[in-house]
């Protein structure tokens, strides 16, 4: 660090110091606009959301806010729809990420073992499409594929004598369908990460393991898992953050239904705020989502720094 450099050092060190500390004004001008912009977009909304969350207030009549203390939070925690949204969001995060990692690992291994075939690598951009495509369109795609009348999924199932499945039609099936869509959409993401991790393992380590007579599960446990752990953790955190803001797909496929079966946190807060105009309750929900994100983010930032430094 520059401030640790003593002035009694060699001339080169001194010039290095002025190089590092010079033109403070210009550097401030480089950084300040971004910081002001981000503060307006994050700190101010946070303060304002907290303010709204302790008031009984309509989005359409913000000047008539009545202070109610923690009532909104208490109401939320006794609202079965909100609890359902919490449960579903947690359930989605845990199950979809678990499936994503397992499937992604298997496919990534397959891909890596085929790396001598050039054309197979060309397939990479094809399987990335689900995670790059517009999420709203992903929702549309599955509304179409899982449609009870004209959907191809049930048609194919009927061909093998199965079904019909009520994809979005009954409470359990709807949640499973949403889960399947999530896995479909985000396994490629996890796979890219795991592949990057696997490809970073030096081949002589595999060679050494083979010479030592290691079984595949030894290689997995002592070589592969330790090598990809950091990057998979990063993937998990980014995916949890994604799940907390999960909205587009449920909005077009189930809107949280049937009943409350597929309600998720962001959709709940969105509906409270912008459909029922309950800015107090909606803001309380938003604050809860934000607090969960902050906790996870604290880990995420540390982790990203560590991976960056490696």
């Amino acid at each position: 660090m520059a401030h640790a450099v003593s002035t009694t050092r060699a001339p080169h060190e001194a010039s290095r110091r002025s190089f590092l500390q010079g033109d403070r004004f210009q550097m401030t001008a480089f950084i300040a606009p971004t910081c002001i912009f981000l503060a307006l977009l994050t700190i101010w909304p946070f303060v304002y959301s907290v303010y709204l969350s302790v008031h009984s207030v309509k989005l359409t009549a913000l000047h008539r806010a009545v202070f109610v203390g923690f009532d909104n939070y208490i109401n939320l925690l006794s609202d079965s729809l909100f609890l359902r949204a919490m449960l579903n969001t947690g359930l989605l995060a845990v199950t979809s990420i678990t499936f994503e990692i397992v499937i992604a690992f298997v496919i990534a291994k397959a891909f890596v073992s085929l790396s001598h075939l050039k054309w197979v690598n060309g397939l990479r951009s094809l399987f990335m499409i689900p995670m790059m495509a517009t999420p709203l369109i992903v929702g549309m795609v599955f509304s179409y594929v899982f449609n009870p009348v004209l959907g191809i999924a049930n048609y194919l199932l009927s061909g093998i004598g199965a079904g019909p499945v009520a994809w979005f039609g009954d409470t359990t099936a709807a949640m499973i369908s949403i889960l399947l869509i999530n896995i479909w959409q985000w396994t490629p993401f996890m796979m890219l990460l795991i592949m990057a991790g696997l490809l970073s393992i030096r081949s002589d380590l595999y060679e050494a393991a083979r010479v030592d007579g290691a079984k595949w599960h030894h290689v997995l446990r002592f070589l592969e898992i330790p090598s990809i752990r950091g990057i998979v953790l990063l993937g998990i955190i980014l995916r949890i953050i994604d799940t907390l803001r999960f909205f587009d797909v449920v909005y077009v496929t189930t809107r949280g239904g049937p009943g409350d079966s597929t309600m998720v946190l962001t959709l709940y807060a969105y509906q409270q705020n912008f459909q029922f105009f309950q800015a107090g309750v909606g803001s309380a929900a938003a604050v809860i989502i934000l607090v969960i994100s902050i906790v996870i983010t604290t880990f995420a930032v540390k982790l990203l720094r560590r991976i960056e430094d490696e």
């Binding site: 994050t42 909304p45 989005l59 953050i241 938003a286 902050i294 983010t297 995420a300």
Partner: peptide, 14 residues
């Protein structure tokens, strides 16, 4: 970096 993690819904009403 941490502002990237903020869910948009948390800033929606403000």
């Amino acid at each position: 970096l941490s502002t990237r993690m903020m869910p948009p819904i948390a800033a929606a009403v403000p």
